[in-house]
Design a protein around this nucleic acid. Sequence first.
RNA 1: GGUCCCUUCGUCUAAUGGUUAGGACAGGAGAUUCUCAGUCUCUAAAUAGGGGUUCGAUUCCCCUAGGGACUACCA
Length: 520
Amino acid sequence: MSKSLKIISIMTSALSGCFLLIRRGRMEVRVRYAPSPTGLQHIGGVRTALFNYFFARSSGGKFILRVEDTDRERYSDESLDDLYQTLDWLGIKWDEGPVVGGPCGPYIQSERFELYKKYAEQLVKDGKAYYCYCSPERLEKLRAEQVASKSEYQGYDRHCANLTDEQRAEYERQGIKPVIRLKVPTEGKTTFHDILMGDITRRNRDVSPDPILLKSDGFPTYHLANVIDDHLMGITHIMRAQEWIPSGPLHILLYEAFGWEPPVYCHLPMVMGKDGQKLSKRHGSTSLRDFREKGYLPEAIINYVTLVGWSLDGSTEFFSKEELEKCFKIENIHKAPGVFDYKKLDWFNGYYIRACENSRLEELVLPYLIKAGYIGSEPGSDELELVKKLVPAAKERMKVLSDIVPLSAFIFVDEPVVDASVYCAKGSDAEKTLSALKNGAEILLSGLKDGKANEKIEEELVALSTELGVKVNGVFQPLRVAITNSTVSLPLFDSIALLGLDETKKRIDRAIRILEAKNE
RNA sequence: GGUCCCUUCGUCUAAUGGUUAGGACAGGAGAUUCUCAGUCUCUAAAUAGGGGUUCGAUUCCCCUAGGGACUACCA
């Protein structure tokens, strides 16, 4: 297909898309998530995606994914992969966009390359924009001077706003590739409406003067591509982070220059770190990949992230994706920025892990055990059996899936505690500890061999503690340290079941030897 | 510097003119006859400050303070 044909097809498909909207009688909600694939998907972006997605679903509209890959300097394939993977992992499906297509495609801006140029040139023809030949060096110098002089007026000095034909021809002869800049009016003011914030007005003289629409490489800047695509794709509501508020008036100016009706705006409160600054790497993990790798569940991320800057009624905490698809309301979005609380996310994640079906949890936990080298990369049936026993015992102790590794380490890595004092519980002494270990082992091992119920054995151990004149833990602690090599562990009977009787006996005998050597 | 936005417990938030200002996380105390976790109970903790309007302001208006964002051939 030739380039011009392709443009025509884009334009007509956009038209038919719009026609579809109108034909439904009532204006259908169409929102979009339009990330730039220049890095990994992070919490802030995902929250924007979620809000758009839930708003679309709850209002019976369409959720569109658009890839804004106009910055070829920072673009990476990895980022694009990560975008798809992340949305897929979260279970967010887009109605129109890359891969699935749609009536307003293509949905990847680099594939619409020629389109933007055409619109930008039209603006020049209409006298709404102009070619600028200023070098980056000159602009850099200009900026440095403005900063140094603390000038109230900052930005481009409109050096090329009124070039004569001769001047232009001369620049062209020199082979300078121009950019196209929008003529921002110096008089008057521009207002846009935000659902949350109300009307936001800015004097045109305060709008950053004459922003670049088309770069010298022929790619559009964000402002141009964004406005054109939002219009052609029939976007009705723009939900994006509040950091975009300052460019709102500029976008309105662009819509006016084109003679288009601007959509409704809804600027989302930002997600901050503990120090009140925009959330970033130095606050902790921000990329979804990080969270996925550490073992956060998608339902926990969705639940918690949605609750930063949104609430249903102030008391409902747990929301499934499906529930949010029904009850999400744009009016319940907050104005004020919110701090991302890692602890609360942990709490949600622990909750969702506990709510998880054991069979699913077994599968989720497997990669972590494999990565730790605890089980083979293709686990055998005995290994799977072990995991099956491990999961219910470890489940309510996990905040993230990777917690399975420290919780189960005692099974796979045997590093005995050689410090005798560790075996001794508070209120006990070396002699009683050794005695508790010996007698306790006897009760435990023979009881288990005879198939006695755990509760029965536990009773006998408690009786032993009374006999020795120590607290219950005075009996359990030496056994626990002997068996799990730690004062903190899974419950004793679970630990033994995971280890097997032979290994348990071996470890207890060893501990007895350690304590005896010490007591001599 | 300029422009714009924001302001209820430490954190996420509920209450929009009349409540002992509610819930949750985190914190503290206790219970659960094994540690840890979990669960349960209890507890401490807020309307940024100052002016108005009003019989009455968390809620409406103004000012101040604090915080944030933007001010690129990045989005």
